[in-house]
Nucleic acid binder design. Structure first.
Lengths: 352, 352
DNA sequence: GTCATTTTGAGGCACGTGCATCAAAAATAT
DNA sequence: ATATTTTTGATGCACGTGCCTCAAAATGAC
């Protein structure tokens, strides 16, 4: 067949340079430079001529060379909540890994811990960032007017900003995270299909229902339950507020008061506390249990069967996607492609 | 709290250059160049001194600058089977997308179709590749001595080679794909848990069982079934050989002869033919059906409920990982990090 | 027309590395 | 010691772009 013989003998198509652009547009390299970098003092007619030439030649700026020329380095800050959360630990671990992955791209990331419940201090922190030493910030913080304004001012000063995992509704084009509604719905699908009996009530446990992602997961969960598992009855969300004693009390009460319990959905990213309570103090082997995020704890729980499924977002992917997006913003590119969509992953014992 | 005030005031740590290296090692830049690029005629003592300095300074070569200097470009070839397979079409689509994603890295990928069943022609094709115009090849072809040897000769000529999706057992360090055993086991887990009844037989359909991945999936599937769903009885694999008439005949017979059928597992990446046969000609709504790979067909089937789950590997991720690995081999780096592990994904209606 | 102003061109250095040449120094052989 | 060979240094250009300066040309105002 030898079909490969028909392959394009690709004459080594060199990419056009600014020199080629200048020649094609009939201007000097200095003018090309002025247009490319948006400098003042170029007549509209000339700008158009250059842009036409860009189109015609399919010119793409060689970013490596540009970065070299201006010794550009990227220094990104991840502003994360201070917390013992295992999921956050994973995130930090992957930021370290990203520092190796992106070393050749001259990217360096630092982690700074913020007080997620104090919008004022977050805003103050963002105000301290100097565009000369910080290229961009990935911010994981709940929405608030102060934070929103601080992000806005940050961008005006020329620092790229990107909501990270927790979303800021004002800038939905730019953010990194999963579709919480779909995640909740997927938890519902799994509980619905894993339950041997079509009837019973389902416990929903969360650290808090104040954040937008918790609410959206809950809405997705309920919608899916109602529509496809009408026999199952999701109970009102139990909130633990990160307090173990309180968690133990409310969970215990709820299990006692709902003898028809068939499943448990731990909605927040910290699954260890509620699951430990359920497994150690009560006989809940027969319950279908689903939680969020891959951590050493949830992995072990999947393996030993005390957890039936985990809905996860890949922390490494989240971090890398954030870095790529911040880099794209800095380079004034559009971060493109399916690569930046964070999947709602389903983890079972067999595909950890 | 102002914890951020404690943050490292990072004096803009510039990465050391070859100049710094030369000074630290007490040699000239020319000698540093000789050592870095493994040229002849440098005394062992001097080589050691330079390497010590590299360690000490933590020198990392600036690949962008290096590529610029030698106008390096990467041209990779994806050698894929010729076929109307929807999964392959997705792969090709993502190669196109990767050409945009990696444009700024001076990477270009071409697709070449090979005859997967003719090792001789594959070997002949690989022999035509000129290192001057082809930097590396991702090869999706079943194992065979001819192909193995051709890959070996290719590498000797200085062309990077990477088994793609289909694995070559001789080079397991370098390959891109999923753990087939885990994929099969995951299919078994899902069928086991989705089935309302704990008893019955399960149909396993494949285009062919000659390839290693099919065998491994089957082994993983059976092992998981035996251990965790002892009541379910997986039937011997039905092979369609890509022949629709044959497929219709064998599937029809199997459904008739096994009235206790509770589930179907379509093992190969082409799910359209068997699923269409099942859905159109027989009443199989009550069966749990699972297949592989995300394609427009499987997506639609998940949405309309005619398919219960899809075990998938992200085609975009596969392609990008292959590109990154080929690039790393070319740059003589080690492709590092969790990023290169291809996950066994579970797709349900709610997380497509 | 002259003058001021805006727009453009020409040229050069820098970024960090690869690669080449030629001379100087050091090591080794005779 | 001298001749030969091996090892090292000095230097310079190239890659594609950013950024700077100074002069030339074009344009507009009067």
């Amino acid at each position: 067949m030898m079909e490969y013989a028909l392959m394009d003998v690709r004459e080594v198509m060199l990419r056009p340079t600014t020199k080629d652009l200048a020649k094609a547009a009939g201007v000097s390299r200095a003018t090309v430079d002025r247009v490319l970098n948006g400098r003042e003092g170029v007549k509209k007619r000339t700008v158009d001529r250059v842009n036409d030439a860009i189109q015609e030649l399919g010119f793409v700026r060689n970013i490596q060379a540009a970065n070299l020329a201006r010794s550009q380095r990227y220094r990104f800050v991840f502003a994360l909540p201070r917390s013992g959360d295992l999921f956050l630990e994973e995130i930090v671990r992957h930021i370290d890994e990203a520092n190796e992955t992106f070393a050749t791209d001259l990217v360096w990331c630092d982690v700074v811990h913020i007080d997620e419940n104090d919008p004022h201090s977050i805003s103050a922190f963002l105000a301290t960032l100097d565009p000369n030493e910080t290229t961009g910030v990935a911010i994981m913080a709940p929405e608030s007017p102060q934070v929103r304004d601080a992000i806005f001012r940050l961008q005006e000063r020329g620092v790229a900003a990107l909501p990270f995992i927790a979303d800021q509704s004002t800038m939905e084009e730019h953010w990194v995270g999963t579709d919480h509604h779909a995640a909740g719905a997927t938890a519902a699908t799994l509980i619905g299909r894993f339950c041997p009996a079509p009837e019973g009530s389902v416990l929903v446990i969360s650290e808090s229902m104040r954040s937008r992602d918790s609410l959206e997961r809950r809405i997705g969960f309920d919608a899916e339950m109602n529509q496809h598992s009408p026999g199952l009855r999701p109970l009102p969300s139990l909130e633990t507020y990160g307090d173990e004693e309180r968690a133990e009390r409310v969970i215990y009460n709820s299990v006692i008061n709902n003898p028809d319990l068939v499943g448990v959905y731990v909605l927040s990213s910290e699954a260890r506390v509620p699951l430990t309570i359920l497994n150690e103090n009560m006989n809940t082997d027969h319950l279908i249990k689903i939680s969020h995020e891959r951590t050493p704890f949830t992995e072990a729980a999947l393996r030993n069967g005390s957890l039936d499924a985990v809905i996860a977002q890949d922390p490494g992917h989240l971090v890398r996607s954030a870095v790529r997006k911040l880099k794209a913003i800095t380079d004034k590119r559009v971060a493109t492609g399916s690569q930046e969509r964070i999947r709602v992953e389903v983890l079972l014992r067999t595909n950890i």
